[in-house]
Amino acid sequence: MIDVIHFIQTKFYYLVVIFLMMIGLYTTIASRNLIKKVIGINIFQISVFLFYIAMAKVKHGTAPILWDKAVIYDNPLPHVLILTAIVVSVSTTAVALALIINIYKEYETIEEDSILAKQELDEEESILAKQKLDIDRSNMA
């Protein structure tokens, strides 16, 4: 029991991070709305950022900026990595949103189910059109 409490005490940041990640991941996979998926993925990624930042923290450390009085600094490397990762994440979101706008233009919906239904319709239509074309042509011939 004490072990468990100790574990939670010393690693609660990580545990919360994992919980947040899973909320994000679940939404990404399970949601049928395209924008909701993007929201989920954002939550997922941002919580990973927190994981890195939490990793960089050193007890009694100060921000990694040169300072006369400081004895211990936090680890700067994860900060650097996350600066890059944030930008990457936003770029991905931007592309995803652009895609969603275009999908809405084409399908007039952002729900995956109705998109799938429309795609099936498309396929049926193209088969029908093909048959019609064939019949037309055979008539012509």
């Binding site: 924008i35 950022f49 930042i53 944030i86 930008v87 706008i101 809405y104």
Partner: peptide, 29 residues
């Protein structure tokens, strides 16, 4: 957690730009 640079970026890029982009996208859908 003393990650000031990251906090700046997250606040501006993460909270700011992402929200703006998303609202823009939402306005068109």
């Amino acid at each position: 957690l003393n990650a000031v640079d990251v906090a700046f970026t997250e606040a501006s890029v993460g909270a700011g730009i992402t929200s703006v982009l998303m609202i823009a996208a939402l306005s068109r859908t």
